[in-house]
Simulated scan of single mutants.
Amino acid sequence: MIHVEIDPNSGFCFGVVRAIDKAEKYLEQGKTISSLGEMVHNAQEVKRLESLGMHTISCRDIDAAENENVLIRAHGEPPSTYKTLKDKGRNIVDATCPIVLKLQQKVKKTYENHPEAQIVIYGKQGHAEVIGLVGQTRGHAYVLSLPEEVKKLDPAKPVFMFSQTTMPLEGFAEMKTALEAYIKAEVISYDTICRKVAHRVPEISRFAAMHDVCVFVSGKNSSNGRMLFNVAQKSNPNTHFISKAAEIQKDWFTNDISVGICGATSTPHWQMEEAKKTIQAFFI
């Protein structure tokens, strides 16, 4: 009989769980609420929440949005977003992850206390969390994702480096080394990577290697999902990416093998359970 196991360390991170809980409490009370941006980078979970009555809007939709309650998701937002919402009379339901919120405050304080320095955010340009962090510096921070990008900086000016919470630890170390080699002034780096997310890398690697076949469940637009899928596939080349259970193919499996199901920090547990039931149904 085929053996199917769900990775106990996969699924939503604390910040996402907290944000969804806040939205569901409003919906359970019969109140309306709009999420400013996708709650998570997972189309199936967004669809589930919208079926409960939640709306997903963008900053452009704030004027037209009927809902008075607007939720700031776990990624956080720049100060300008809060001002816009307040000016429009919206009730802000702030679900920014506490770890991200603390980082935002640290970036803001550093920027204000060190006007002579260059603020560097090690992260992905355009990522929601990064936009929120850059906003703490009134748009003056540098976003770098590759070591060679340090050449955008002035080598004579000091640097304060922070990281998007979901970036890889190895990449942070490489960026720090590149900055210290290029910048002639002082370089102060703050490792602000969330360990619960960072530890997913070795955990996923070990889990994938333990099984004959690995099925990775994630939204297609999740950067964390793409990164963790690559980790799983490196450990187990027989790893398949799906965004929903209907994409699972029977010919990936044979009887009497071990199958592991894992996912991104934006993958709900119910979706991995659905994948498990789909695989098991092939062999009934």
Rank of each mutant, 00 (worst) to 15 (best):
I204N: 05
I204K: 01
I204L: 01
I204V: 13
I204T: 14
I204H: 05
S205D: 07
S205I: 02
S205P: 00
R206A: 15
F207G: 06
F207W: 09
A208G: 04
A208C: 12
A208R: 00
A208Q: 02
A209D: 11
A209T: 11
M210T: 10
M210H: 14
M210C: 08
H211I: 08
H211M: 08
D212A: 15
D212H: 15
D212N: 15
D212I: 11
V213G: 07
V213W: 11
V213T: 15
V213A: 11
V213Q: 09
C214P: 06
C214M: 15
C214W: 08
C214Q: 12
C214Y: 08
F216N: 13
F216Y: 13
F216W: 10
F216P: 04
F216M: 14
V217K: 13
V217T: 09
V217I: 15
V217P: 12
V217E: 08
S218Q: 04
S218P: 00
G219W: 02
G219N: 05
G219S: 10
K220I: 13
K220H: 09
K220D: 14
K220N: 12
N221W: 05
N221M: 13
N221S: 15
S222T: 09
S222E: 09
S222C: 12
S223I: 03
S223N: 15
S223W: 06
S223H: 11
N224D: 07
G225N: 00
G225W: 03
R226E: 12
M227A: 07
M227K: 14
L228N: 03
L228W: 10
L228A: 01
F229I: 08
V231G: 01
V231N: 01
V231L: 07
V231D: 01
A232F: 08
A232W: 07
A232S: 09
Q233R: 13
K234V: 00
K234M: 09
K234D: 09
K234Q: 13
K234C: 00
S235M: 00
S235H: 01
S235F: 06
S235P: 01
S235G: 02
N236H: 06
N236P: 02
N236Q: 02
